[in-house]
Write a protein that binds this DNA or RNA. Structure first.
Length: 470
DNA sequence: AACCTCACG
DNA sequence: ACGTACGTGAGGTTC
């Protein structure tokens, strides 16, 4: 196993001083004193010593453990996908009246908009090339206009899964221990989040049924079981806490379902009368708010009309008016300082905040608002990981996926570890609202069932079904 | 290498 | 009136 070098440490120091640049210049000698002085000046020494440095060893341990893959399952899945993709190619070519490369957006544009004459006036243009976009959101608008659209959706989903996951993952399994090892990077994300690569295990499919077939390939060693704990709505809890919004705080303190509670306020109904569709819309709006969305953006990404979206956003801020004031104060702050810090002192700079270009300036404002929330969530997760690895190394922490941790534990010990880990995750940092983590176990990463103290009768099902529109 | 698209939180 | 959601990594196509 590789040792942690002083160069790695210097890299982290440079990252903390100015995250968001991709390449950090770290001199070979004599530069450490300068970095240390800068960390002190910017009050980053605590994050450096108490979070990032201890985390390095935790990440090394996780990378070294790897995770077991069901190779036979993936190889079988690859064959099935290959057969179906071949059928789809034939059908699409027949409907188009021409053989072309469906994976080429350029050729697909020609077929859809010139040969088949699908109207383009409602469709977005591509940023750089100026061509008409064939992205999923635009294809969605063409649904029903031509039978080829449905087939293209299926072709895209299947080829994505096959070429990104089903075929490459088995190739990456280690010859020595037959497990799959990712690499975590601690110095990439501008918000302090981790990133995962070679392979990226932070974007394994979960939202579609077929995607879950891929996820099923992630399994535990014989006699063991996968244990997953995820923070429940951590970013919304942080928003409630940082803003001090009494209405949001009340909802979380009463242990209510936040999306339903939001829906009740936006749509003006009793919480018991909230429909699944209303809850889904409220969930979309809750996320949107954290990203600083406009009414137009919200209507683009949901079934809401633009005017509807505007009304719901207005209602939202009426219900949570202290949140609105807090976001405004953050924007004022980033204009004044050109930077944002989270409660632990993590910094991100926003040079674009002074741009005379509206779009660029607005983007910087949204990034600054989001950074103050997302970065605290990232730090809470990092602190939990350090504490868990220190106290319960035998729980075998395998994966960290932003608000979720996956462990591989002896079957008969799962309940015990779940309890211990949950306790740490929920108490490692104090907010003005409770922090909650939900535990699940399963033979694979797709089929997990809740364990531990849960309110009877109202826990999420294992498969999705309440997802926001993607 | 740039572009487009899409997987995840 | 502006222009239109935060953070990532990766595959295929095109130049």
């Amino acid at each position: 196993m590789k040792k942690i070098s002083s160069k790695d440490q210097a890299l982290i120091a440079a990252y903390l001083l100015n995250p968001g640049q991709r390449n950090y210049e770290v001199g070979d000698s004599g530069s450490w004193a300068r970095l240390a002085r800068q960390l002190e000046e910017k009050k980053l020494m605590r994050i450096f010593q108490e979070i990032e440095l201890p985390l390095m060893q935790v990440l090394k341990n996780m990378e070294g453990r790897g995770i077991k893959l069901d190779l036979a399952w993936l190889i079988d899945l690859s064959k099935k996908l290959g057969k179906r993709i071949d059928q789809l190619i034939k059908q699409i070519h027949k409907l188009a009246g021409i053989e072309f490369n469906i994976s080429s957006p350029k050729q697909l544009q020609e077929v859809l908009f010139e040969k088949l004459r699908i109207p383009t006036e409602n469709l977005r243009k591509n940023k750089k090339s100026g061509g008409v976009s064939t992205a999923a959101g635009e294809l969605e608008k063409m649904r029903g206009l031509h039978p080829i659209i449905e087939l293209i959706f299926e072709y895209r989903e299947l080829t994505k899964l096959k070429s990104t996951y089903v075929d490459p993952l088995p190739e990456l399994v280690s010859k020595s221990d037959h497990r799959l090892h990712t690499s975590y990077s601690q110095t990439v994300a501008a918000t302090g989040r981790l990133s995962s690569s070679n392979p990226n295990l932070q974007n394994i499919p979960i939202r579609s049924d077929l995607g879950n077939q891929v996820r099923k390939a992630f399994i535990a060693e014989k006699g063991n079981i996968l244990l997953s704990l995820d923070y429940s709505q951590i970013e919304l809890r942080i928003a409630a806490s940082l803003s001090g919004d009494l209405e949001m705080i009340k909802i979380f303190q009463h242990g209510q379902d936040f999306h339903s509670a939001t829906a009740a306020r936006i749509f003006g109904v009793k919480e018991a009368d909230v429909t699944p569709s209303q809850r889904r819309d409220a969930k979309t709006i809750n996320f949107s708010i954290l990203y600083g969305v406009s009414a137009f953006g919200l209507s683009e990404r949901s079934d809401m009309q633009r005017a509807e979206a505007a009304e719901y956003i207005k209602k939202y801020y009426e219900a949570f008016h202290q949140l609105k004031a807090y976001i405004a104060s953050l924007i004022q702050l980033v204009h004044k300082d050109g930077l944002m810090t989270n409660p632990l002192g993590r910094i991100r700079y926003f040079p674009d905040i002074h741009s005379s270009n509206f779009a660029i300036r607005s983007a910087a404002e949204r990034q600054a608002v989001n950074m103050s929330i997302q970065s605290l969530a990232a730090d809470i997760m990092k602190m939990a990981m350090i504490e868990i690895e220190k106290e319960i190394p035998e729980a075998n922490m395998l994966l960290s996926v932003h608000d979720e941790l996956v462990f591989e534990v002896k079957k008969d010990k799962a309940g015990k570890y779940a309890k211990l880990i949950k306790k740490i995750m929920e108490s490692v940092y104090k907010l003005k609202v409770p922090i909650e983590a939900d535990a699940k176990i399963g033979e694979n990463w797709a089929e997990m069932s809740a364990i531990g103290a849960r309110l009877p009768g109202r826990q999420g099902s294992a498969s999705g079904g309440e997802n926001t529109k993607s």
